[in-house]
Amino acid sequence: MNRGFFPPAEPVSRLIDEFNKLPGIGPKSAARLAYHLLRMPEAEARSLAEAIIAVKDKIVLCSLCQNITDSDPYAICRSKQRDQNKICIVEEPLDILALERTGQYQGLYHVLHGVISPMEGIGPDDLKIRELLGRLKSGKVEEVILATNPNLEGEATAMYLQRLLSPSGIRMTSLARGLPVGGDLEYADEVTLGRALEGRREV
């Protein structure tokens, strides 16, 4: 250890270490955050700590759609208003928010939690595909909408699912063109996304 270097009190350095583990947070930002928390009113700090614990304690993956939820099944899966014959397949939970904002879709969802990415070693078994096949076995689903991102990995994943599901005879559609290539679904505006949903085509 350097001469003249006095480490912060143990609880503070522990907090700094924990922040340092977060994505995009280096040692300097970690220290800044830790000292910011030290100056925070006790109630606010406690509320933050409770929010972190609650997110780990109460949040689970819905056993049906695999979305993150605090009640299993997730609200959309429980709702009698939703069309039980349609499942829209998305990469990430945030994509559900984007599609819900359009107000155009009344069916169910399924979250893959990623895309097939051969170069990163992410294959079908790393996604929630087995869970999807389980849901389709019920025979109630008449249409599967492939709403992966309009980029190479998203399209490769859609093609894989198409191949996997085609023996089942379920109608498969994908979002209409108009979504720019390379972009992420979660950033698409409601109008464009709504139009893409309306004009979806058979694959």
């Binding site: 980029n151 190479l152 990995e153 979504l179 720019p180 290539v181 390379g182 950033y187 505006d189 464009t192």
Partner: peptide, 16 residues
């Protein structure tokens, strides 16, 4: 900004 659908660049720097 290439993950934004408004990006002019995104499609030109797609994989492969």
């Amino acid at each position: 900004g290439v993950r934004k659908p408004t990006s002019k660049l995104g499609g030109h720097v797609e994989l492969l």
